[in-house]
Design a protein around this nucleic acid. Sequence first.
DNA 1: CGGTCGGTTGAGCTAGATCAAATCCAGTGG
DNA 2: CCACTGGATTTGATCTAGCTCAACCGACCG
Lengths: 237, 237
Amino acid sequence: MQTSHQPTLDRTHRIGLSLPPTTAPAGQDCPDIGALEQQATTISVHKDAELYAQGDPARYCYRIVAGCVRTVKLMDDGRRQINEFLLPGDWLGVEALAEHDLAAEAVTAVTVRRYPRRALDQAAGHDCRVAHWLLGIASRQLRNARDRMVTLGRKSASERVAGFLLEMVDRVPHESAGHVPLPMSRGDIADHLGLTIETVCRCLAQFRRDGTIALGRATFAVRSQAALLALARATRH
Amino acid sequence: MQTSHQPTLDRTHRIGLSLPPTTAPAGQDCPDIGALEQQATTISVHKDAELYAQGDPARYCYRIVAGCVRTVKLMDDGRRQINEFLLPGDWLGVEALAEHDLAAEAVTAVTVRRYPRRALDQAAGHDCRVAHWLLGIASRQLRNARDRMVTLGRKSASERVAGFLLEMVDRVPHESAGHVPLPMSRGDIADHLGLTIETVCRCLAQFRRDGTIALGRATFAVRSQAALLALARATRH
DNA sequence: CGGTCGGTTGAGCTAGATCAAATCCAGTGG
DNA sequence: CCACTGGATTTGATCTAGCTCAACCGACCG
């Protein structure tokens, strides 16, 4: 991982949503967003730069405006687990305790809106709706984490990859012709799914040969939703 | 840190230990617990009985008083992932959305204190401290879940088992002579760690042969803390 | 005392890891 | 515009950690 760049502060105030529509299901807006916005800053981060490191004091939290962010845990010997990929509309670092227990890195060039956690805590302290909203974010993250634990603990490689593709279909706004962008590298996908790069490649290649998906370099398209759903066996109910 | 901690008998107020995060916020009770207690019921559950099922509407949440509870996700074909084991003092179901996304089952005979979630939601609605306390519980669960994802995605079988034993050492009050009870079956441990029963057995047997642990039928004792720590490689920082 | 149910141990088997070798672009410089 | 270069991706060949299948053991129980 390159430590090449510091996050570059960028004050350009983006007024309109010059963005693709946010399909991210991260939840409703913060009830008291108006007051918070005054203390927020818009920041641009280069590809592969770090928003924050494992163990950094959690002074800020972030909302992704554009681009893709990964949250990462490292073991001493370099083994890596990517907790999740965050997309426009998603919140990041809201649920942290005193320190961030994950690093956050830019998968692509990224624009985020940065909020002081102190302000958010204060808002939560006198407006229960804000506190409730925060709890909602944390609860959804927890639900996702639990689903991912089934994936990591009990699913086969092709189930993992198929499930991942379906998740991307739902989360990433499609390009024309049903093509879904896949901004992260094979290595990132592997470290997210608990596999190796080669296994991810082989699964994707297999799906392509079977006519289940079409595969571009950094995009894919679902050819047979049914086949993909069958590959990614769901948890009960 | 030695293995010869004095047995902590006050289970509901264990203070946070350095190693593994527990679900219960170490000593922090719900700020408004008094009012809630009036709406709570004490319930006994038989071994292997269900407190609630996957998909049940989340009408209640629980605090474990005695015994051990597992939270479980099932796949259609019967594969099982145990999310966590809950011990006295831990809260259960607090972070649920409308429905429980995990089943909860009694590992041993269990006594729980049951609270109506509606009452808790109301309390959270007019007392921000309660909302904040709930957020704390969810945040700690999230941190645990993330650590477990590294375990499931990237650790070897013996690392998983060694880490599990160390977690138990810190969470379960010791019996005399440093013996730690292991209330759950090998199958439960396997489904928690993403392994098979046989692999769990073999790892434990190996540790015993190496003199790292002593092994009873439903207990174990750490013989070499250092060896066990070395086996369970930690995540960085 | 026989039966059942966890747990343990042994003997292969295999999904996925590892090692190695193309191949494919994207970006660079001429 | 084109050749060149370096990293990412793909594919192939082999290896192995952990799974599966099967036998056995020992505690508990009616």
